[in-house]
Computed example of a mutant assay.
Amino acid sequence: MKILLIGEYSRLHNSLKEGLIALGHDVILLSSGDYFKKFDTDYSFHSSFTSGHWLPRKIKNIIHKLTGIDLSKAERGLRFYLLLPKLKNFDHVQLINSDAIETFPFLSRLLYKKLFKKIKNRSLLICGDETPVIDYLLKKETDYCILTPYFENNSLKNHFEYPLKYAAKNYRRTFDWLSENCRNLITSDLDYKIPMDKMNYKTHFIPNPVNSNKIKFQDQEINEKIVIFLGINRSSYIKKGIPYFEKALRIIQEKYPEKVTVIITENIPYSDYINRYNTAQIVLDQIYAIDQGYNALEAMAKGKVVFTGGGNDFIDHYNLKERVNIHATPNIDSLVNEISFLIENPEAIVVIGNRARAFIEREHDHINIASQYLAAWK
């Protein structure tokens, strides 16, 4: 098959591409590279002019402030349009989400319609914020979720501009059109499967693909100090519960000044990010999650002890008898207690890290996952 993958936010599509190629398929990936993360892509619709040069960026910011219009979205839409003549003879196309082109919703629909005239078999991946997911979270039926800080303090609304946009009329219209014109809806983890089920959407649940061949397992050598890593993305700082980690780390550093080293990074490219935590035994990923996001999975593949989603729904789904990560909740005392246990019992770091790697190889192997995608597409 000749397959087109559109959009990339986490390396999910890159890993899926590698699995599909290993199975003998021809795959092309289009994306913006996702800003500072700079993910690999075959063709790019990155807004390099309005984002990469001082004067256009300054003009863009002024226009956005005065009118609310984001010229970067217009540039991405234009660049995608210019790529359309190259997108021929594909057997299947998959979108990373309904905003895969990262342009204005009306322009997205226009571009999707042009693309879909050429490609009849299509799928829509739900692996992040999406209209039915946000609709479900806004019902407040869970103990906590990524919108909890917004529910608790409406003044934080600006921090939730990205997820809340999917509840707006124009984005909702795009999702509804895609759900009618894509053969398959696919969810990548339980944080999206459960809301989609609750909102009565039928989806294929296929776990995130991880190419363990590219991720070297690291035996967790415990030296005099335990290294703890926290990578911050400012755009999702509140949404991922980073303030809880920061407060817990301050307590840990006061409690164990001679036993821990803390590494904190902010808004760095993906290639730098994955290298920065190589020396860490513990990685703090996110609060408010049921399942693991992509950064957490890659850290687990390296044998790190990752604080992320790992509660009862996750344990039950994968029938786990022992912990493969640490379930991070919006509770500072719980976080401090869990980190303290690992510092005082470093042998647990080795054991959980080994389990984490085995779990990734068993449940997230990129070639096996690629086979599941092929089955769903057919």
Rank of each mutant, 00 (worst) to 15 (best):
T67G: 08
P105W: 07
F205C: 01
T174M: 12
K65D: 06
D70C: 01
K117H: 07
D129L: 03
P149H: 11
P85H: 13
I119Q: 04
E152R: 00
H204N: 15
Y81Q: 02
M199H: 10
L87C: 08
D129Q: 09
K114M: 15
L190F: 13
K73P: 04
K193R: 14
I186T: 13
K140C: 12
A168G: 12
Y136Q: 10
N184I: 00
R79L: 15
L138D: 02
T67Q: 01
T148Q: 11
L110E: 00
K118F: 09
R173Y: 15
F151Q: 03
D191C: 10
M196E: 00
I194M: 11
K165A: 05
L111G: 06
N170W: 12
I194K: 02
K198C: 12
K120T: 03
E75K: 01
F160P: 10
I69G: 01
L78W: 09
N158F: 14
I101R: 03
G128Q: 06
E161G: 08
S188I: 12
N153M: 04
S179V: 07
N200H: 13
H159M: 12
R183L: 14
L66E: 03
W177D: 01
S155W: 01
N208T: 13
T174F: 06
K140L: 12
L178V: 02
N121W: 03
N154S: 14
P209G: 04
K86W: 01
S179C: 07
T103H: 01
I69E: 03
N200F: 08
P163S: 13
Y162K: 13
F116T: 02
M199K: 15
P105C: 05
T142K: 13
Y192C: 10
K139A: 08
Y144M: 03
Y81P: 00
S108E: 15
P209R: 01
T131F: 09
F160W: 11
K157Q: 12
T148W: 06
L147H: 04
T148N: 00
K88L: 13
A167W: 12
R122F: 15
K193F: 10
K86H: 06
I101M: 06
P207E: 01
K86N: 10
N181T: 06
K140M: 15
K140P: 07
N97K: 02
E75T: 03
G68I: 11
G68H: 02
F80Q: 02
L83Y: 08
S179G: 03
P207L: 07
K198Q: 14
L125P: 04
I146E: 10
H159G: 00
E75V: 08
Y201P: 05
Y150W: 14
K157Y: 09
Y150Q: 04
E180T: 04
K118V: 10
N184V: 01
L87H: 05
Y192V: 07
E141W: 08
I146Y: 11
P132R: 01
P195A: 02
D143E: 14
V133W: 05
G77W: 07
F104T: 03
P85N: 10
K117N: 13
E152S: 06
